Simulated scan of single mutants.
Amino acid sequence: MPTSDRRGAWFTLACVLLLGLFLLRNGSAGSADSTDGPPRPAPALAARHATTAPQPPAPAPLPPSSPRRITIPSLTVDAPLTEVGLDTDGWIQAPPLTRGNLAGWYRGGVTPGERGTSVIVGHVDNTAGPAVFYGLGAVKRGSRIEIPRADGRTAVFTVYGVELFAKRDFPARRVYADGPVPELRVITCGGGYTKKTGYDGNVVTFARLTGER
């Protein structure tokens, strides 16, 4: 089995067992005033369940290259990326909570643009207020997500779905499944919030590679 295929298969299993649990476990990493602040944007009704719609053919996968930034023009997101891995307890690490405009690419998976599913995570808020993916739930189907990479290429993804999943129903296999084309998941906390239990869900954006520049 080629190295990229092995990594894709391993990544699917690791995400099912670890990453989904991490995101749910760490949903409490929010602002101390979250219950009193403005509501977080939630996926629009028109965008929900769009992940079942037929998708156009994806271009040929890109070779491996570490991502450097993530931009979502429709949300005015332009943030550096750091690599995240597993901590000593076997959980996927999050970007430092104190750096609100920093997102994390899980280095145990494929790089954005490679065949398979790459994952980028970030906080919705912190004690200072809204963080990098505060508006993620408002992204529209057809929006672009661009990932500048170390090789000078920018992988361009098109959003085809955004959904809010409750902790108790988080569909890890569906979200992180390995596949034959380059896919991207951008994930943050979402749903209701209490100081005792944190956020009760996750906002997940589904996107597919549609070009490069």
Rank of each mutant, 00 (worst) to 15 (best):
M1T: 06
S4C: 04
D5C: 08
W10D: 13
C15W: 01
L17S: 09
L19A: 14
R25V: 04
A32Q: 08
A32S: 08
A32D: 11
A47N: 08
H49N: 12
A50Y: 07
A50S: 15
T51D: 14
T51Q: 10
Q55L: 15
A58S: 15
A60R: 15
P63M: 05
P67F: 12
P67H: 13
R68E: 13
R68P: 07
T71P: 02
S74R: 08
T76W: 01
V77C: 02
A79G: 01
P80A: 13
G85N: 11
L97H: 13
L97R: 14
L102I: 13
A103R: 06
Y106S: 08
R107A: 13
T117F: 02
V121R: 12
H123A: 02
N126L: 03
T127Y: 05
V132Q: 04
A138R: 07
A138C: 06
G142V: 06
I145N: 10
P148H: 09
G152M: 09
G152A: 12
V156C: 10
Y160C: 07
V162C: 14
E163T: 10
F170A: 07
R173F: 12
Y176T: 02
G179E: 07
P180S: 11
V181A: 05
P182L: 01
R185L: 00
R185G: 00
G191M: 09
T210F: 10
G211K: 01
R213H: 08
